[in-house]
């Protein structure tokens, strides 16, 4: 029998594994990882964005042999990493404005190209800086197919300014500008945009979604993206304990549940076509994902108006994702 047996104890879902060949371990398992984002930053406890950024940039640093420049949009990630006189970055890093990270990165890439350097360029920002204010520049970078990997750390609202709604905020979620009051509490159903699919519509070489819950998946996608040239986009779900009203130790669990519920489908696309999806391992109802988050607390109050309907609609969204991306593994489908 020549089939490879996944180790039970130390399966490929853990960060590292003393039993695995070192090339099969994650970048994060290595003592030599770049720590592109190092200690002393001022992110809240359990910050998903801090984690996602280190995961992604360290993986990119390995892929680029550390020949990398990062451009950062204004937002939490920028504020908590670079308050004068200290920076947490250990990578060449530039912050310009909230809405122009993609364009600035295009400029850096152009400079590298014209100077004949192999230096790779990443632009990164939160969902507000990506799906809203930075969308024009992002779309421009996409359509020009500039040699930039754009990474969106999506925590589903403007967290830096105090949790206001963005176009990435999910329906029913409470934010400071979509309060959980009135007949239809929280964010309005039928609004928002799906940036990974919009990115795909640009026909760019690579689009992927990832979460901080599945590091192997995330690193594989960053590595794949870094192996390509032209405009690439990775959308990483990064729970925000503060904005979501969740425990700081639940950041990874919530990412996992977002995937396992079907609300956050994991997929890859090349030139506008979906090329791979990550199947759901243990499917859960959306309520299991929503319940630990205070931003959805109004959906679980027995007397709340329209709560059940909202839950049903969110479940329907998850089901639609599962159908669209064919997310059920063979074994989950028969359960």
């Amino acid at each position: 029998m020549t089939q490879t047996v996944k180790f039970y104890q130390t399966g490929t879902l853990t960060v590292g594994n003393r039993l695995l060949d070192s090339d099969k371990r994650t970048v994060q398992a290595s003592r030599n990882r770049s720590n592109a984002l190092t200690c002393g930053h001022r992110a809240c406890q359990g910050c998903g964005e801090a984690l996602g950024a280190r995961y992604a940039i360290d993986a990119a640093m390995r892929a680029a042999n550390r020949d990398l420049v990062c451009v950062n949009a204004t937002g939490c990630l920028e504020v908590f990493t670079t308050p004068y006189p200290e920076t947490s970055w250990q990578v060449a890093w530039l912050h310009s404005l909230f809405g122009n990270a993609a364009a600035v990165a295009s400029g850096v890439a152009a400079a590298m190209r014209v100077k004949g350097k192999a230096t790779r360029v990443i632009a990164q920002g939160g969902d507000g800086g990506t799906t809203d204010i930075g969308f024009g520049c992002l779309s421009g970078m996409f359509e020009r197919n500039d040699d930039v990997l754009y990474i969106c750390y999506d925590n589903e609202a403007y967290m830096n300014t105090g949790v206001q709604r963005s176009s990435a905020t999910p329906p029913a979620a409470r934010t400071a500008t979509t309060p959980a009051v009135g007949a239809a509490p929280g964010n309005v159903f039928g609004t928002g945009k799906n940036l990974p699919r919009i990115a795909m519509a640009h026909g760019i070489p690579y689009v992927a979604t990832a979460t901080v819950a599945d590091l192997h998946d995330l690193e594989a996608k960053v590595t794949r993206a870094m192996g390509l040239h032209g405009a690439r986009y990775i959308h990483i779900l990064v729970p925000c304990p503060l904005g979501w009203g969740a425990a700081s130790h639940d950041t990874i669990r919530l990412s996992r549940l977002a995937v396992e519920s079907g609300l956050f489908p994991l997929f890859e696309a090349e030139h506008g076509e979906v090329t791979a999806t990550t199947p759901i391992r243990r499917r859960v109802p959306v309520a299991e994902y929503l319940k630990p988050q205070k931003r959805f607390a109004h959906l679980f109050r027995p007397d709340a108006p329209g709560a059940q309907e909202a839950l049903d609609r969110l479940q329907a969204m998850a089901d639609a994702n599962i159908r669209r991306f064919n997310l059920l593994s063979a074994e989950e489908a028969v359960r």
Partner: peptide
């Protein structure tokens, strides 16, 4: 030895220049 980039707005035009200049071009 020059990259001529058609951008999508003036905001992008100067932003691209900012990135390029910061990278030494």
């Amino acid at each position: 030895g020059c990259e001529f980039i058609n951008v999508e707005s003036e905001f992008a035009a100067l932003s691209v220049a900012i990135g390029a200049s910061a990278a030494g071009a």
